[in-house]
Design a protein around this nucleic acid. Structure first.
Lengths: 278, 278
DNA sequence: CGATCAGTTGAAGGCTATCAAAGACTGTGG
DNA sequence: CCACAGTCTTTGATAGCCTTCAACTGATCG
């Protein structure tokens, strides 16, 4: 019938700056890195030295093509912060089945702040054009135990806690929600996280995900993802297409998806329980 | 036909010492606490002071009845270490659906070493008679940033990393494995973890889980868990019953369940990839 | 011994997967 | 500029894994 309600324009300019190697400072100022530092500092007071360290992070930007694996090289203590673009952490089974463990958005850190990274079969993959910056200085500061970086260490712990909560959400989605609920719940998560990163308005955000990627995240088949999205459109909960998502009925979405799970807000001021709903 | 192949004897003496308030030292010496300390020290060198702190942990044991929620009281910085018995972390949806996020075995810590705990709807529930001990001293030591406890902090990070890997396993199970595979994979995980805690032999371990509990962990219905278990018995992969599990064909189990996921061994000597299988 | 709980079994149906093929858009090369 | 391949989306038909409902068996317990 009509033209396909495309979700993905992987090379769309919205999702990544140009190679950026030439103008690192612009990239730094514009998005993911700033989101990260402001998020960290909202988690607790940071000393001047700590802020200084954060400021120095964006210095070695690097671009990754969609579909590329990230971090295969500097495995030991490697950590990179996503400046622009989307990535995911995934695992592939022996027969090719893939499960996406979580999505990694601008301002998120790859490689886990707190670990030397263990060979467990997970891998990081760029979903769009991706720009990352070296964050190994952060890891060093945090794991050093240097009291000068205590605030940073604490902030990193809170960040890890948030990430864990997101993973719990993912488990609940996969284990006990229907396809319809899963999709809505994931959209709510993405919206909340992107808002936190300053990349979403009140009711709209760019989402460069293929239905294929969505299916591997939500544990569904591509076909069923397609049909679920259509149902969601028909129900006028979301307006999805062209790599863009607009929320049409937030309250209903939250109710249907049982959105009472994570507390995302850094200051924990935003209460989000069942109590606040009709 | 024959008598039911019972999995659960929740009050079975094997799964928890008597109240233990009277003989704390015995409990301490016997199981979960020792497993925890030896696990931590295998993760890296600990100073005398740190070992001393660990030694002092078992001092305020406490017993929880099956089905009881744990930690509702001392929420702020609470942390308890499981000395004996099984528990789980779960989340309940608005309409009553339950998802178990992970199982907590002797030697595991409740309340997350590294966090002030956030109100995110998760709760800890005792699955058997449970004995826990106060571990808030550990949390204090780790979050203090005191350089005297650097080794402890590092060990805790590695522990958290392991826990994260287990959660990734859970996501993959729920998202991309069949009921049959999920069950086998979970059994392999439990076996490995119990072995690490000294609570399982080469091919056998006690498992005090109801089929109902298993279903809420694996995202299945009770009925289907029952049928899946029967199939596994017929295929002579596992001998399950009376709260006891015996592994009959480890290699086949690992192949079927795609057991190549977490590296559990504390010293990371145990390679466990697809490569090592037929 | 009735009540309760865990396990088992059968039947019916639904949610979701698989297979197959056709539109739509993008980028490439002739 | 158009043909062509490739990727993503959409649609229809069929099948299957798993759920739900209901009932029954054993075992435990007061």
């Amino acid at each position: 019938m009509s033209r396909p309600q495309t979700l993905a324009y992987l090379n769309d300019a919205r999702f990544a700056q140009p190679p950026a190697r030439t103008t690192p400072r612009v990239v730094v100022a514009s998005s993911g890195l700033h989101a990260f530092t402001s998020r960290l500092s909202s988690l607790g007071k940071l000393s001047g030295e700590e802020v200084e360290l954060l400021r120095g992070l964006g210095r070695f930007p690097r671009s990754h093509a969609p579909g590329t694996e990230i971090g295969a090289e500097a495995t030991p203590g490697m950590a990179r912060i996503v400046v622009a673009g989307w990535a995911c952490r995934q695992r592939v089974l022996g027969d090719g089945r893939r499960q996406i463990l979580n999505f990694i958005l601008p301002g998120d850190v790859i490689g886990k702040l707190e670990r030397p990274e263990l060979p467990c079969g997970d891998s990081f993959v760029a979903l769009t054009q991706l720009v990352t910056a070296d964050a190994s200085a952060l890891v060093k500061a945090i794991t050093s135990g240097d009291p000068a970086y205590r605030g940073l260490a604490r902030a990193a712990r809170l960040l890890a806690q948030h990430e864990t909560a997101l993973m719990h959400d993912q488990i609940v989605r996969l284990g006990r929600q229907t396809a319809y609920e899963r999709m809505l719940h994931l959209m709510l998560e993405l919206h909340a996280r992107l808002q936190l990163a300053g990349l979403a308005s009140e009711d709209e955000f760019a989402m460069p995900l293929t239905q294929d990627v969505l299916s591997d995240c939500l544990g569904l088949s591509v076909v069923h993802v397609n049909r679920t999205l259509q149902q969601i459109r028909r129900d006028r909960l979301l307006h999805i297409g062209a790599g863009q998502v607009r929320i049409l009925d937030l309250t209903l979405m939250q109710t249907v998806a049982d959105w009472s799970l994570v507390a995302i807000a850094p200051n924990a001021n935003v209460s989000r329980g069942r109590a606040s709903m009709a």
